[in-house]
């Protein structure tokens, strides 16, 4: 599906551009966005390094283990395949906590660390595990109590009450996160999404890549 959507974006984009006369804009966008992607990654190096360092202290001091233990009843339900004392649990908790507080630039480094840790439990490299899909689902549905960027932009646009959207946002994000968790669990049980369906194909591709 991801191959289809990726190709679809490019095919639709180029074909539509021919009819709308935006061909030059498409060329520029492809080049500029590739540059932006690299800038984002480079920009991540600093905060990634900072938060990984802080996280190492939190781990070594037992802070994360304590947090993971306190939240283990929920975490075990969400991620049954991840051992309760695995470092992935701590990193995921830190990521979700940072998201809830609206600290986007701290959430990403914790999330990346969590994915690396989850991959150490992955028996079929290159194929997402149930825990990874659940973690991504929770992240893409956004768990936040503080939509800081939106409030900032509303205030900048001259809103009389920039924070009035907080309640509705919390309600909407709760609905989306709960449906994300339910759908991730349900779809994970469907035949077409079983890990076994993807193993052979990815092995073939690995061979082709040499």
């Amino acid at each position: 599906m991801i191959n289809g959507i990726w190709l679809g974006l490019i095919v639709i984009g180029v074909v539509v551009a021919i009819f709308t006369g935006n061909v030059q804009a498409v060329t520029d966008a492809a080049i500029n966005f590739s540059g932006t992607a690299v800038e984002i990654a480079i920009g991540l190096i600093g905060i990634m390094t900072l938060w990984l360092g802080i996280m190492a202290i939190a781990e070594k001091s037992g802070l994360i283990r304590g947090l993971a233990k306190a939240l283990s009843p929920i975490m075990k339900k969400l991620f049954p395949d991840v051992p309760a004392d695995h470092p992935a649990m701590g990193a995921m908790i830190m990521n979700i906590a940072a998201n809830i507080l609206g600290l986007g630039n701290a959430a990403t480094p914790f999330g990346l660390k969590a994915m690396e840790e989850l991959d150490t439990l992955n028996e079929h490299k290159g194929v997402a595990t149930d825990a990874m899909v659940m973690f991504l689902a929770i992240n893409t549905s956004s768990v936040t109590l503080l939509p800081a960027t939106v409030i900032g932009l509303r205030a900048a646009a001259g809103s009389a009450n920039a924070t009035e959207v907080i309640g509705p946002v919390i309600l909407a994000t709760t609905i989306s996160t709960v449906s994300a968790i339910i759908l991730a669990k349900l779809f994970g049980k469907m035949k077409r999404y079983k890990v076994e369906n993807y193993i052979e194909k990815s092995d073939v591709e690995n061979v082709q890549e040499g």
Binding site: G126, V133, Y193, V195
Partner: peptide
Amino acid sequence: AVYYGVAKITKVRHTLSVG
């Protein structure tokens, strides 16, 4: 892109449908 990139995941299974 970001989270699966770091673990080199290309077979995303139901992630995209759910997302």
